[in-house]
Design a protein around this nucleic acid. Structure first.
Lengths: 193, 193
DNA sequence: GTCTATAGGTGGATAGAC
DNA sequence: GTCTATCCACCTATAGAC
């Protein structure tokens, strides 16, 4: 249907605008201009901007979780799974974008409750996935680390989001890549004390 | 003078607003309302919003660099200097704020050139300071790490900024603290391979 | 579903009196 | 230096024709 198609194209443009300019850095007029439609048409699909934002988060989360499932089901060692996880971030940065939810985390205090909950949940899902992979990897002796896997998972998410954030202001993907390489080497290959 | 005083109070309020809501998440009306002055008075001190933003960055950088100097001049070992550095971030987060320049890094694509340059320079200064401390610490055998100090410095800045960003959406300082503890333990106390 | 038209408000910014 | 008054562009959102 044209309806579904329009909604998807609106989400595509809005997603990029949020990832580049932030949730308060774009307007319905920007989307309308790019798609050569009227602002009112966007309101038909997403009555309020918060509705659009919530839909963006839901779709992004769904796509991201699909990628996580795919990585998890690939029968490779845990350290390769973590590397594949990091590549998800690299691919976003290559498009000169920030992670959608990382960007929304910056805008957090200005968001409607539904959007806030979506952002928080996105990070929780990521941390839960990493925690699982880390624990299994430690059990299988594929990776070595001390302490709680959940803390290490939180550290990985934090560091990857932060590396994207800072790298964007330097305009260098290479900087992100060297930092991530260092991060994974230090955290996952370090000999247990 | 009342002038200087007013300008400083404007910067105080604006700084908090940027750190909490982002550069595109507040207006001159918000500042005027809090200080019970008129918007025109703010324009007298800072004609355009970009002028206000540039002044915010300059002041923040100056304050931050002062703190860095103080830490550097304290005659403690490098690992304690790094810990003191991390506490600078913790103190910001305790006030329920994001690092000013971390927030502006999210808004980066929407900023005027002067502001962009200020943000980029803030990170460069931080990384240069950390690189110096790390190299001296390695030489003195106070800390141990492999590879280039500058890469580790970039990783530390990235991770601290990211940990603030994500912790804010969880509303927990304790999460930030445990992540930072893990980060410093893993990176600075790891046995050299 | 998409459009025109418009409401009702807020954004940053300026002119000029005091 | 601060104010009142105002400009105008833009914002989110809605009503109603097609």
């Amino acid at each position: 249907m044209a309806s579904t198609d329009t909604a998807a194209r609106i989400l595509d443009v809005a997603e990029r605008l949020v990832q580049v300019h932030g949730f308060n850095g774009f307007s319905y007029a920007d989307i309308a201009g790019e798609l050569s439609i009227r602002k009112a048409s966007i309101h038909h699909h997403f009555p309020a901007k918060a509705d659009l934002g919530a839909a963006l988060i839901a779709r992004y989360k769904k796509t991201f979780c699909g990628a996580l499932d795919e990585i998890y089901q690939s029968r490779v060692s845990a350290d390769l799974k973590i590397q594949a996880y990091a590549r998800l971030y690299t691919n976003v940065l290559r498009k000169q974008r920030m992670c959608l939810c990382g960007m929304l985390a910056a805008d957090f205090q200005t968001l409607a409750k539904e959007m806030r909950d979506g952002v928080t949940d996105f990070f929780s899902v990521n941390e839960a996935w990493l925690t699982k992979v880390l624990e299994e990897g430690r059990k299988a002796k594929a990776i070595h680390f001390d302490g709680r896997a959940s803390t290490l998972a939180e550290l990985l998410v934090s560091s990857l989001e932060g590396a994207m954030l800072v790298a964007r202001s330097h305009g260098k993907v290479s900087r992100f890549e060297s930092v991530v390489k260092k991060l994974l080497n230090s955290l996952l290959n370090a000999a247990s004390a």
